[in-house]
Amino acid sequence: MTDTPTEDGEEQTETGDRQATGEQPGPETPTGEQPEPDAPTDVGRPSVLVPLKLLEGESLPNGVPELLANARVVLLGYHVIPEQTATEQAREQFGEKAMSKLDEFADSLAAAGADVETRLVFTHDEATTIDRLIYEYECLAVLVPNSAERVDSVLVALRGTVGVGRNTRLVAGLFADAGVDVTLYHALNEGESPDDGESFLNGVRADLVERGVAADRIETLVEDADAPLDAIAGRAESHDAVVMGETDPSVTTFVFGMPSEQVAERFLGPVLVVQRERPEE
């Protein structure tokens, strides 16, 4: 869908397969309106990482297959093992059981229409594993797997122009043909006027329309919120899923957890956390 040359010249290898599945995004070429020129490599379905702690009883929540029907899902089953235990030891004992569970979930995702790749990892460190797989599959987003009864409307919380191209790619890729209402939300930053906010969201809307999302399904919402996270969590209640970005770790992050985590805890529905562009090595 984009002919912007990629920085490293790499092409997604499975472009052809994706087209065969018939879920091609619109044929439009992005124009100057695209707020970020950094969104190029992914041709075809957006990759979404779905991490599940299989052996702690986490299963694929309701609504997730529907939510990710148009995605290339990287289904990661993982088990965190205390350091006093060898990973091999856990694999030997639990590997088979975990794998069959994972396959079951993969089937239900595939039945809903998603392309699925499964990985099962025994690890001492959750963050290392998730981060490694985000890189390996160039995942646009990671799902916080909470359940949704249905997927009719999605809240897309946008902070600013940086990296917004990845948000639009994800939203358009997942929901362009899915008959889902998209609400673009922006909490004003300091020194930003409501007009600035509106024009930012209108730019994003135009980009989404160009990527194949029906214009009448997109709403915009600008708000001057003292506590953006509370506001997002509050707004989310009238939606079925949330799309938001990850944040730089900061002191508040250490104390209160990642913002997306805080939102997910209060919202209790699925949250797609859009990943920053990972630096190339």
Partner: peptide
């Protein structure tokens, strides 16, 4: 949590 790790990793 299932949150993504920060990308400073």
């Amino acid at each position: 949590s299932s949150d993504p790790p920060d990308s400073s990793g």
